[in-house]
């Protein structure tokens, strides 16, 4: 052909070129963390330190008595001094939290799988799950404590009721949101229900489940603490919430703050751990875990 330039084949852009792969820029690292990660850690710490400093100063200048508002230093000293009792209580609260969370995961995922297998089951049972979710736990906790007999079992049930619904509803959403064409493709290859569940629906539901898990982790702790408060007014508990009540009655306000601090730190730790698990499981493929250059 004598036509010179028009139909020269563009061999470089053949749809298989390696240019299409994303380029992962290597960032300078400080103490093992990428440089861009440090502001996210340092900025909140700076705010925290400044706030605590102002708090301490305000308490000292105004000579506020510790039974009204203790300064952060005193709270820290109390935490160290009372560590023996407080850590025991923390352990009790955390144990209930994690057992409730585990039960919420097992029951939530199992129910979600069953519901997507049978519309009848979903129609019949889902309203009751919603009723459990919308009924204030404080209102039914006393009943559960009476019925359950064992206090630990009662606390576990309360925390579980609060924690399980986000996992259930998120997993149902996830199981139903598998790509319709992929469902067709599985059908076309004669996949069994179990194969479709195992290879398509469960992986598709994973990001939704993990989002539910993050919410439920915090809720399980709240459920455990709230139930302990209810049980604690009856004098029959030994978790952190009970320590708060007890210290409150005795006007040991620094101890109240120390226990509060432990609950908050536990909540943060649970959130970080569930976020980290989520990141590990999704980082290779899910949009939410991807880093973008633009």
């Amino acid at each position: 052909m004598s036509v010179p330039s028009i139909d020269a084949p563009a061999a470089a852009h053949d749809g298989t070129d390696s240019e299409a792969r994303p380029v992962f820029a290597t960032e300078p690292r400080i103490l093992g963390l990428p440089a861009s990660a440090w502001p996210r850690i340092l900025a909140p710490i700076a705010i925290g330190v400044v706030t605590l400093g102002l708090w301490e100063l305000a308490v000292r200048w105004n000579e506020i008595p510790p039974y009204i508002l203790p300064g952060p230093l005193l709270i820290g000293q109390t935490l160290v001094a009372d560590w023996g009792t407080l850590s025991g209580s923390l352990w009790i609260t955390l144990r209930i939290t994690f057992m409730a969370l585990a039960a919420a995961v097992i029951v939530g995922v199992t129910l979600a799988v069953l519901f997507t297998q049978s519309k009848w089951l979903e129609m019949s049972l889902l309203p009751y799950a919603v009723i459990l979710q919308v009924t204030p736990i404080v209102a039914i906790a006393p009943l559960i404590i009476i019925w359950a007999g064992d206090i630990n079992l009662a606390l576990l049930i309360c925390a579980w009721i609060v924690a399980f619904f986000p996992i259930l509803s998120n997993t149902i959403l996830g199981l139903n949101s598998a790509d319709h064409n992929l469902v067709n493709l599985f059908q076309l290859y004669g996949a069994t229900r179990w194969q479709t569940m195992r290879h398509l629906k469960l992986p598709a539901a994973l990001p939704y489940f993990l989002a539910g898990l993050k919410i439920s982790g915090g809720l399980a702790l709240i459920g455990a603490v709230v139930a302990e408060f209810v049980a604690g007014t009856g004098g029959s508990a030994s978790g952190l919430a009970y320590r708060i009540l007890e210290a409150g009655y005795q006007l040991k306000i620094p101890r109240v703050f120390a226990a509060l601090l432990m609950i908050s730190l536990s909540g943060i730790a649970i959130f970080l751990v569930t976020s980290w698990i989520s990141h590990l499981l999704l980082r290779r493929w899910h949009e939410s875990a991807l880093k973008r250059e633009n």
């Binding site: 064409n181 493709l185 599985f186 290859y189 004669g190 290879h199 398509l200 992986p203 493929w285 899910h286």
Partner: peptide, 23 residues
């Protein structure tokens, strides 16, 4: 399909293996 309709959680190899696994 019109869209590639791949399983985003699976590698290219695992995606191609899928019909074989199902069989």
């Amino acid at each position: 399909f019109q869209d590639p309709t791949l399983m985003p959680w699976a590698s290219a190899l695992a995606n191609v293996m899928m019909p074989l696994t199902l069989k």
